[in-house]
Amino acid sequence: MNLYSFAKTVVYAALKPIYRFEVIGAENFPKEGGILLCSNHINALDPPVVGINAPRAVNFMAKEELFHIPILKSILPGVNAFPVKRGMSDRDALRRAIKLLKDGEVVGLFPEGTRSKDGTLGKGFSGAGFFALRGEANIVPCAIIGPYKPFRKLKIVFGEMIDIQPYRDRKASADEVTEVIMTNIGQLLDQYKKSK
Rank of each mutant, 00 (worst) to 15 (best):
L133S: 00
N80C: 11
E136M: 09
K63S: 13
A62G: 14
I98C: 14
F130Q: 04
L72E: 07
L66I: 10
R96I: 05
A132I: 01
I75E: 03
R95G: 12
S74P: 00
F131N: 03
L121Q: 02
S126G: 01
D92Y: 11
L109D: 05
L94V: 15
K85D: 12
A132K: 03
D103R: 13
R86A: 09
A97M: 11
V140G: 09
D118Y: 08
T120D: 09
E65H: 08
F82I: 07
M61P: 01
S116A: 10
R115E: 01
P83G: 10
S74G: 14
L66S: 01
D90M: 13
F131H: 02
L100T: 03
I139A: 08
M88W: 00
F110M: 07
G108K: 09
E136P: 01
G122R: 07
D90R: 11
N59M: 02
R115T: 08
V107D: 09
S116C: 05
V106W: 14
I145H: 03
F60C: 04
S74E: 09
L133V: 00
M61S: 03
I71R: 03
F67S: 10
I71E: 04
D90P: 12
A93W: 06
V107Y: 14
R115C: 08
P70I: 07
F131W: 05
L76E: 04
D90W: 05
G119F: 06
P83A: 10
K73N: 14
G135F: 10
G119C: 07
L133H: 09
K123M: 01
E64F: 00
G119Y: 08
P111D: 02
P83Q: 07
P70C: 11
F60A: 02
G78Q: 07
F60L: 02
P70D: 11
L94F: 14
F82D: 05
L100D: 10
K102F: 09
D90E: 12
A93P: 04
E112T: 01
L109H: 06
P77H: 12
S89G: 15
G104A: 13
D103L: 11
L100E: 07
L72P: 05
A143F: 06
D118R: 03
G108F: 10
A143M: 04
K73S: 13
P83F: 10
L109P: 00
V107K: 14
V106I: 14
G108S: 11
P77I: 13
K123D: 00
G135Y: 10
R95W: 05
I144F: 08
K123C: 00
G122E: 05
A128F: 04
R115H: 01
N80H: 15
E136R: 15
L100W: 12
G129V: 00
L66V: 06
N80D: 11
I145V: 13
L76T: 05
R134E: 15
I145W: 01
S74L: 13
L109W: 06
F60R: 01
A93N: 11
S126Q: 04
I144D: 09
D103G: 06
A137Q: 11
I144R: 05
G129P: 02
A137H: 04
F131C: 02
M88P: 00
K99Q: 14
K117H: 03
F67M: 10
H68T: 14
L94I: 15
S126P: 06
L109E: 06
F130I: 00
P77F: 15
I71F: 15
G124C: 04
